[in-house]
């Protein structure tokens, strides 16, 4: 398994872990049986806005740890260049990721149409962010293995 494949797998797993821990934290700190937040736009806006830097920071830390462990165990160097194949794979996986997010966005609008509380819309939006990230990583792995 090459470095890029391992990185995609690590990235997908870390996305799931970050979202899971963040969701557990939000649920246990604020939501646990408390329905006052279901219509609180300020709260949900900050939940999503805080999630973005949390994800970026956690991904950087996980990436550094992965690179160190990978270097120690396999003595494989991190590829110093990003060539045309890397760029095509990145473009295609980003496209898939964006399509997934677009679908999630429409789904979140549908929750409002069906008269569900705004909380459902924000949860659908957050979940679509997570799925978009995972689809991006899985697509990357798929294109590396199967070719473009």
């Amino acid at each position: 398994m090459c470095y890029q494949e391992k990185r995609s797998i690590v990235s997908a797993i870390s996305t799931v872990l970050i979202f899971t821990f963040y969701s557990i934290y939000i649920y246990q700190t604020y939501l646990k049986g408390n329905l006052t937040y279901s219509h609180d736009y300020e709260f949900w806006g900050s939940v999503i806005l805080i999630l973005i830097p949390v994800m970026i920071l956690a991904n950087i830390v996980i990436y550094i740890i992965f690179s160190i462990i990978n270097k120690i165990t396999t003595n494989e160097n991190i590829p110093s260049i990003s060539d045309e194949l890397d760029k095509i794979i990145e473009l295609k996986s980003t496209r898939n990721s964006h399509y997934t997010f677009m679908f999630g966005m429409l789904l979140s609008m549908a929750t409002l149409t069906f008269g569900l509380p705004p909380m459902a819309m924000f949860i659908a939006l957050t979940c679509s962010m997570m799925f978009a990230c995972i689809i991006g990583d899985v697509s990357q792995l798929y294109f590396i293995r199967r070719g473009v």
């Binding site: 090459c2 590829p79 260049i81 060539d83 045309e84 194949l85 890397d86 590396i144 199967r146 070719g147």
Partner: peptide, 22 residues
């Protein structure tokens, strides 16, 4: 050729058709 080994592997196996420049 100025690319990664992974790209050469993909080209050699026919999994990727390189650009004209490559």
């Amino acid at each position: 050729a100025g690319v990664t080994r992974q790209t050469i592997v993909a080209v050699e196996k026919g999994k990727y058709s390189p650009s004209l420049e490559l």
